[in-house]
């Protein structure tokens, strides 16, 4: 018995150890590049507003530690560390003399995305709607999504869980339309102030259409309309409409 009781402790210790060593582990295998521009400017922080405190000159070798947004933390041979903008990092070369291939995120990357995440707000038959979803793209035109939303009405709150397929016929358009089809469940919780009502869960199906707009870097906007049909256990089925707009990012 005593032997078993130590296991959670050990696992805890292991997790703690991992957590503490994580930042160190992440800094493994730094990459070395040679400055090819006359010089590159090293800022004190990852942003153009932070002052330049050092420059690395042409032919100098620097080690790249990490990237944050479009900034790179580099270290010179003398141990000086600073953040360099992506445009200046493009003017460095690898050990074999080829330029360091770096891409800023663009509309093309949005088309080639694999994963997307977004949160949204909107309206569902007068109730405030909010939620989030994760999407996986099979190719430029077809993707699948899992979403979880909550609609907060005056008399009840509804939770919706949906799985849907999304078809995007014109991924190259800036304002790119999409069509969606899916199903899920809806759970209705009447407000505590109301009496003689009970929670219920029903299955749903929905059809919808919307627009995706690439903004900048890894961000995009998405607006959508959906029509839901609810298959209730009562005599007749219900249906309702949902409008939403969201801000998302992709990988």
């Amino acid at each position: 018995m005593r032997r078993f009781s130590k296991i959670p402790l050990r696992i805890g210790g292991l997790l703690l150890g991992l957590l503490l060593s994580w930042p160190m582990l992440a800094e493994e295998t730094p990459m070395r590049v040679q400055v090819f521009a006359p010089f590159i400017e090293m800022h004190t922080g990852p942003g153009a507003v932070y002052p330049v405190h050092h420059v690395a000159e042409r032919d100098e070798w620097v080690v790249i530690h990490k990237r944050r947004t479009d900034w790179f933390l580099v270290e010179t041979r003398r141990g000086k560390q600073g953040w360099v903008a992506i445009d200046e990092m493009r003017q460095t070369r690898l050990e074999d003399g080829t330029p360091l291939p770096l891409t800023a995120y663009s509309e093309k990357d949005f088309r080639d995305r694999t994963w997307e995440f977004s949160f949204y707000g909107g309206d569902m038959e007068g109730a405030a709607l909010l939620g989030l979803y994760a999407g996986y793209a099979f190719n430029e035109n077809l993707s699948t999504e899992v979403s979880f939303s909550q609609a907060l009405g005056d008399f009840s709150s509804e939770y919706l869980f949906d799985v849907n397929l999304v078809s995007q016929p014109f991924p190259e358009w800036t304002f790119s339309p999409f069509f969606t089809l899916g199903g899920g469940v809806i759970r209705t919780n009447p407000n505590a102030t109301l009496v003689e009502t009970e929670d219920r869960t029903d299955t749903t199906a929905h059809v919808g259409a919307g627009l995706k707009v690439y903004m900048t870097r890894r961000f995009f906007l998405r607006g959508e309309f959906r029509h839901y049909a609810v298959f209730t256990s009562r005599d007749e089925n219900e249906d309702f409409d949902q409008w939403k707009i969201g801000l998302g990012f992709f990988f």
Binding site: M31, H65, K66, R68, T69, L100, P101
Partner: peptide
Amino acid sequence: EITEPNFDEED
């Protein structure tokens, strides 16, 4: 084939 090197991205 140009592959972007893998950095430790901390976003």
